[in-house]
Computed example of a mutant assay.
Amino acid sequence: MKPTTRGTLAAVVTGVAATVGAAAPAVASGTVPVPVPLGGVSTALGTEVPRLGAELPLLKPGAPDGPRYVTGRLLPDRALPQLPVTSGLPGLGARAPLPHLLGEGFDHVDVDSPTGDLRALTPGLSSDAPLTAPDGGEFGLPGAKVPQVGVLPPVLWTGADGNVGMGPGL
């Protein structure tokens, strides 16, 4: 194997290992922090700039409820089951400096919205065939009936929270 190929392979393996190592804590906590680096802007302009950061939640699909068999129906109750999904609302953290109008120094405005729980169910489908169950009175043949189809609506549960505040200093 050539040295250039060996070096390229080592760089790819190192990059993959770094990505997996960085992703493991995010998967364990359920959110991915997204800092906004503005330190260079503060140094270049010689002034205070806002501090920004966010948290993006990871989607976690759950196990769907299987079809439910009901006596007297040919098809199961929920032919297309609803899939539960849990996640969170994105979080935001911002802190902006407020300069004093008549003096030296800064105060700050702080906006904080932590991640909130979010649970959802995808739409589902329930249907029944246009035939009844076989009947002993009609030589074991099924009878005709009106077909039934129902759409199970999506469901969403969540609660948002946030704080806004002002204070002295940065």
Rank of each mutant, 00 (worst) to 15 (best):
G150I: 12
A17T: 06
T19Y: 06
H108K: 11
L56F: 12
E104S: 14
P50T: 04
T115S: 15
L59P: 01
S126Q: 13
R68N: 00
A54Y: 14
L45S: 09
G53H: 04
V111A: 11
Y69Q: 08
G93Y: 12
A11C: 11
L9H: 00
V16K: 10
V20C: 08
G21D: 00
D107Y: 07
G167W: 08
L75H: 07
P64I: 01
G72Y: 09
L102F: 09
G39P: 01
L101S: 13
P134V: 05
D107Q: 08
D112R: 14
K2N: 15
S42H: 04
K60E: 00
T14V: 15
P99N: 03
L45V: 10
A44N: 09
S113N: 05
P130C: 03
G143R: 15
V155M: 14
G39H: 01
G15Q: 00
T31N: 05
D161T: 13
D110P: 00
P64E: 08
K60Y: 00
L152H: 07
G169W: 05
G103E: 07
P154S: 12
G137R: 15
L38P: 03
T132G: 03
P97V: 11
Y69E: 09
V49G: 00
G103D: 10
K145L: 05
E48M: 13
P97S: 06
A79T: 15
V70L: 11
G167I: 07
P64R: 13
V151S: 07
Y69A: 02
V49H: 00
G105Y: 08
K145F: 03
A96P: 02
D107N: 13
G62E: 11
L9I: 05
